[in-house]
Amino acid sequence: MAIRYIGIITVLFILILPVLTLAGALSIDQMKWYMLIGSILWFILAPFWIKNK
């Protein structure tokens, strides 16, 4: 269950990054790298709670 919450937070993290960029709080280069990290994290976590039934 904890992994699932971390996964949801990861997706929200990815979504908030360009919002921060639009708000001027994050450079676009920073956004790109953080987004890649978030994406990798998502694909590491997702198989734990999205099962192949």
């Binding site: 997706v11 929200l12 990815i14 979504l15 990054l17 360009p18 919002v19 960029t21 639009l22 676009i28 956004m31 987004m35 994406s39 998502w42 694909f43 997702a46």
Partner: peptide
Amino acid sequence: PWMIVVFAACGMA
């Protein structure tokens, strides 16, 4: 879920 937020991120970027 990931793909959809990344699509949105593309638009905002």
